[in-house]
Deep mutational scan, measured.
Amino acid sequence: MQRVNMIMAESPGLITICLLGYLLSAECTVFLDHENANKILNRPKRYNSGKLEEFVQGNLERECMEEKCSFEEAREVFENTERTTEFWKQYVDGDQCESNPCLNGGSCKDDINSYECWCPFGFEGKNCELDVTCNIKNGRCEQFCKNSADNKVVCSCTEGYRLAENQKSCEPAVPFPCGRVSVSQTSKLTRAETVFPDVDYVNSTEAETILDNITQSTQSFNDFTRVVGGEDAKPGQFPWQVVLNGKVDAFCGGSIVNEKWIVTAAHCVETGVKITVVAGEHNIEETEHTEQKRNVIRIIPHHNYNAAINKYNHDIALLELDEPLVLNSYVTPICIADKEYTNIFLKFGSGYVSGWGRVFHKGRSALVLQYLRVPLVDRATCLRSTKFTIYNNMFCAGFHEGGRDSCQGDSGGPHVTEVEGTSFLTGIISWGEECAMKGKYGIYTKVSRYVNWIKEKTKLT
């Protein structure tokens, strides 16, 4: 034993070699072989497995989906700052455009905790909710729209109204504003409101030439003092309507412009014939205590009207009353817009006519005020429907199939267009061939041609 100890002390290297040989010859039971080890760690190889990531292109799944990435790591994937920024906006807080917040056709661009709407022409605001041009839906104005110097929408209202708090709607500024039905039992019968379409306001006024200088022999019209197929109006439903009495009662109609003036057809009036105007009328054979009678003290036909040349060209006249009318729910003026808007309103496509005229061709006159909704007829169809001249200051309205029309005794009465609950004068009943005849239409004086003249002559002093 002493000898062994001496050998170990003198030859430590020998001992180490012996131990190493023993270990190498022993069977290893701690580690699995290569094949079995792979069965336990069965993990798919990654895209760049075996390579240094710093030297390969980034992978979106590896960089940002398996674990949260930084902007720089995302930049490695896209290799483009702009594309990385677009991805980053949604990656950080989701897609803010998912709810489609942009209105009126706006395009949404996502941002971090926010979004941006790219608005089409005519709109602005956070969600493109603000109209900035009158060309689109009248700028959301209830009545009139004008573009300011910086191309912003400025709404306005006709006389007797003021802008509401929203700067879009119009509200009454006087007790009985024009064009409004205020009798409670008839307010439910107000005709369907007309909503502004998209309009090209630059070209809204037709490029028409008034044929002022045409000389033409007097034409022989049949029954051209021209509501057939209409309905009984309720008291106060058309408070701007008046009836004219002269040699015979209810020979023509008219509309209240203001307390002192009536507008009617020029062919209705004769110099030297006494005319009485009755406002607030409903049943011409009954006294309903809503009527107001006034005498006409002055007749002003349009300066281009000449019955000797043509009885229905420039067929418009103004009547001055001896005493002002007292405005109330049964006696209310009709609204008159400017030339541009009167023309736009007419193009809405349908209007209402009213009167006490004959209820059928050569038949009896109506006792109760009649009204009828009539569609506008395109000019080409209008011209083809008659052998008589249709001037540019006239328009056609009615039904091709016949059966409904204005008729004798309705002449001078109103053709009105309702705009968001307020009625505007767009025409004056003038003439036609018979009444409600198939293929024939009622012919009306186009008020847009005469609004400046009306307003100039009827100013209240």
Score class of each variant (00 low, 15 high):
201 Y>H: 10
121 F>A: 12
352 Y>F: 14
156 S>K: 08
329 S>E: 15
71 F>H: 09
405 D>G: 14
432 G>D: 12
384 R>V: 07
381 T>F: 13
425 L>G: 00
46 R>G: 15
175 P>H: 09
399 F>R: 05
169 S>L: 05
176 F>V: 08
327 L>N: 00
424 F>T: 00
302 H>E: 02
326 V>C: 08
256 I>A: 01
434 E>P: 06
324 P>E: 07
374 V>D: 01
111 D>K: 08
271 T>G: 09
448 S>M: 03
26 A>S: 10
248 V>E: 08
404 R>H: 15
444 Y>D: 00
278 V>D: 03
271 T>S: 10
276 T>Q: 08
354 S>I: 12
341 Y>K: 05
79 E>A: 15
425 L>M: 04
365 S>T: 14
276 T>H: 08
172 P>F: 04
177 P>N: 01
13 G>C: 11
391 Y>E: 12
227 V>F: 13
424 F>H: 02
234 K>N: 06
24 L>Y: 07
133 T>I: 04
290 T>D: 04
131 D>H: 15
227 V>D: 12
437 M>T: 14
145 C>E: 02
324 P>K: 06
93 D>Y: 05
226 R>D: 11
361 H>I: 13
336 I>R: 01
341 Y>M: 10
323 E>A: 14
96 Q>Y: 06
77 V>G: 15
126 K>Y: 10
245 N>K: 13
440 K>H: 14
134 C>L: 02
88 W>N: 15
380 A>G: 12
359 V>L: 14
11 S>M: 13
263 V>A: 04
369 L>G: 06
40 I>C: 05
93 D>W: 04
180 R>V: 04
332 T>K: 08
149 A>S: 10
124 E>D: 10
375 P>M: 14
162 R>M: 08
290 T>W: 11
233 A>I: 08
368 V>E: 10
452 N>P: 12
216 Q>A: 14
261 W>T: 00
281 E>D: 12
47 Y>P: 13
282 H>V: 10
343 N>Y: 03
456 E>C: 06
321 L>P: 00
332 T>W: 02
409 G>E: 06
244 L>K: 01
30 V>K: 15
459 K>D: 14
149 A>P: 11
287 T>N: 13
232 D>S: 11
435 C>A: 04
102 C>W: 00
187 S>D: 13
185 Q>R: 10
253 G>R: 09
372 L>T: 15
95 D>V: 04
190 T>K: 13
188 K>T: 06
459 K>S: 15
147 N>I: 09
346 L>M: 06
14 L>A: 06
46 R>N: 09
54 E>H: 13
110 D>L: 05
315 D>I: 00
142 E>D: 09
272 G>S: 11
161 Y>T: 00
243 V>M: 05
180 R>T: 04
297 I>L: 10
157 C>I: 00
264 T>I: 03
213 N>G: 13
368 V>A: 12
410 D>W: 15
9 A>T: 10
444 Y>V: 05
355 G>F: 14
62 R>I: 04
228 V>M: 06
236 G>D: 03
115 Y>R: 02
131 D>R: 12
213 N>S: 11
121 F>Y: 12
383 L>G: 15
176 F>C: 04
42 N>H: 11
242 V>P: 00
153 V>I: 09
341 Y>G: 04
451 V>R: 03
130 L>A: 07
223 D>G: 10
178 C>K: 01
35 E>P: 11
230 G>F: 12
362 K>W: 04
215 T>D: 07
450 Y>F: 04
337 A>E: 01
171 E>W: 07
297 I>S: 07
40 I>F: 09
334 I>T: 02
126 K>M: 08
220 S>P: 13
454 I>R: 00
12 P>Q: 08
295 N>S: 13
235 P>S: 07
91 Y>P: 08
437 M>L: 15
403 G>H: 14
241 Q>M: 14
369 L>V: 08
384 R>A: 12
264 T>Q: 00
30 V>F: 15
237 Q>I: 08
57 Q>P: 15
319 L>R: 00
115 Y>W: 05
160 G>N: 06
390 I>D: 08
230 G>A: 14
143 Q>W: 00
231 E>Y: 05
97 C>E: 01
208 E>Y: 13
135 N>Q: 12
272 G>I: 08
60 L>T: 13
191 R>L: 13
35 E>N: 13
248 V>G: 12
48 N>V: 07
337 A>H: 01
405 D>P: 14
110 D>S: 09
440 K>R: 13
4 V>H: 11
283 N>S: 08
338 D>C: 04
271 T>V: 07
380 A>K: 14
235 P>G: 05
265 A>T: 04
237 Q>G: 08
189 L>H: 13
195 V>K: 09
184 S>V: 11
422 T>N: 03
111 D>E: 06
336 I>F: 05
431 W>Y: 13
282 H>D: 04
365 S>V: 13
447 V>H: 00
335 C>W: 00
179 G>H: 01
406 S>W: 15
373 R>P: 11
441 Y>F: 10
179 G>P: 01
230 G>L: 12
258 N>W: 01
360 F>Q: 07
256 I>N: 00
313 N>C: 05
264 T>F: 00
16 T>Y: 11
196 F>A: 14
399 F>Y: 15
60 L>N: 15
281 E>W: 11
423 S>N: 15
459 K>I: 13
178 C>N: 01
103 L>S: 07
410 D>A: 09
13 G>T: 13
347 K>D: 08
175 P>E: 12
457 K>W: 07
381 T>D: 12
35 E>G: 13
127 N>D: 06
370 Q>C: 05
440 K>V: 05
